[in-house]
Computed example of a mutant assay.
Amino acid sequence: MQETHSTPKEQLLEAALMHVPFDGWSQATFDAAIADSGVEPTVAHSICPRGAVDLALAYHAQGDAMMLAQMAQADLDAMKYSDRVAAAVRFRLEAAEDKEAVRRGTTLFALPMYAPDGARAIWGTADAIWTALGDTSEDVNWYTKRATLSGVYSSTVLFWLGDTSDNHEDTWAFLDRRIGDVMQIEKFKAQVKASPVLSKLMAGPNWLLSHVKAPQRMPANDLPGRWTRP
């Protein structure tokens, strides 16, 4: 069997997770990770120029990768579409084995200077879920789907952090309610389209929104958009 070797960033992250519950995603944690992992300081600073902040983002990306792997193995085709979305969010939370690391990350990305990083990370998770589920929207729905799921995911994470129920059953019930709320919104949108009166009232906004297009695939740390000329 071929032996697999972790990258320097993976080594740093593994070492950092031992210190995060005590020192958070801080400089002290980053320094301890360098010492414990044996990664050369110059290498560590080159791959993580912002220190523990970059490790926190790597931890989030690692969770996304674990979620996608679980989605690939699960029989999602047998589920209703809303249940697939709920299952994906559940897989993502289950991938975060260290709740304290997530709690500390939430605190870090609540700081104004790092809030954009946190928002991009959450958006990236929502985008990964929709892409894995085969979303092919090319219009404004590309944005609304990801924005809505970002809100569902964020609120569920906060609930999960305080959940002490057995097997996080209260969290999964909370998640189902949030997905149900989203389905009600989609139902209302369908009713608007089906109503001649409401369709006329929404003609202007719908024309405007029809020119919003999904972004071209770009680096994961960017959130671009496109506008087509009428």
Rank of each mutant, 00 (worst) to 15 (best):
M1R: 11
H5R: 15
H5K: 15
S6P: 05
S6E: 13
E10R: 00
L12I: 03
A15E: 02
M18S: 11
M18E: 13
F22Y: 11
F22T: 12
S26M: 03
S26N: 03
T29S: 11
F30N: 04
F30V: 08
D31A: 14
D31S: 14
A32E: 10
A33F: 03
S37V: 07
S37Q: 06
V39H: 07
E40S: 14
P41F: 05
T42S: 15
T42A: 14
V43E: 09
H45N: 12
H45W: 14
I47H: 00
I47T: 05
C48Q: 03
P49C: 07
P49A: 09
R50D: 14
G51V: 03
A52S: 14
A52M: 10
A52R: 03
V53E: 02
L55P: 02
A58V: 02
A58P: 01
Y59C: 10
H60A: 09
A61L: 09
A61C: 05
Q62W: 06
G63M: 03
D64C: 13
A65C: 02
M66E: 11
M66R: 14
M67D: 04
Q73D: 12
A74V: 01
L76M: 10
D83M: 07
V85K: 07
A86V: 03
A88H: 06
V89G: 00
F91D: 06
A95W: 01
E97S: 10
D98L: 11
F109S: 06
F109V: 10
F109Q: 03
A110E: 08
L111A: 13
L111T: 07
Y114F: 15
G118M: 05
A119N: 08
W123I: 07
G124P: 01
T125N: 06
A126M: 07
A128L: 04
A128K: 10
I129P: 02
W130Q: 10
T131W: 05
A132F: 04
G134V: 02
S137W: 05
E138H: 11
E138L: 12
D139Y: 13
D139N: 12
N141Q: 12
T144L: 15
T144N: 05
T144A: 06
R146L: 03
R146N: 04
R146F: 00
T148A: 14
T148D: 04
T148I: 11
T148V: 12
L149F: 09
G151P: 01
V152N: 04
S155C: 06
S155P: 03
T156Y: 00
L161A: 08
L161M: 10
G162M: 10
D163T: 06
D163A: 08
S165W: 09
N167C: 07
H168Y: 15
D170L: 15
T171M: 09
W172S: 02
F174N: 09
L175Q: 01
D176E: 13
D176Y: 03
R177Y: 12
R178Q: 13
I179C: 00
I179A: 00
I179N: 01
Q184Y: 06
V192H: 02
S195K: 04
L198R: 09
M202I: 00
A203K: 15
A203F: 10
G204F: 11
G204S: 09
G204E: 09
N206Y: 12
S210C: 01
S210N: 05
V212D: 00
R217E: 09
M218A: 14
M218S: 14
M218C: 09
P219K: 06
P219Q: 00
G225F: 15
W227D: 00
R229I: 15
R229N: 13
R229T: 14
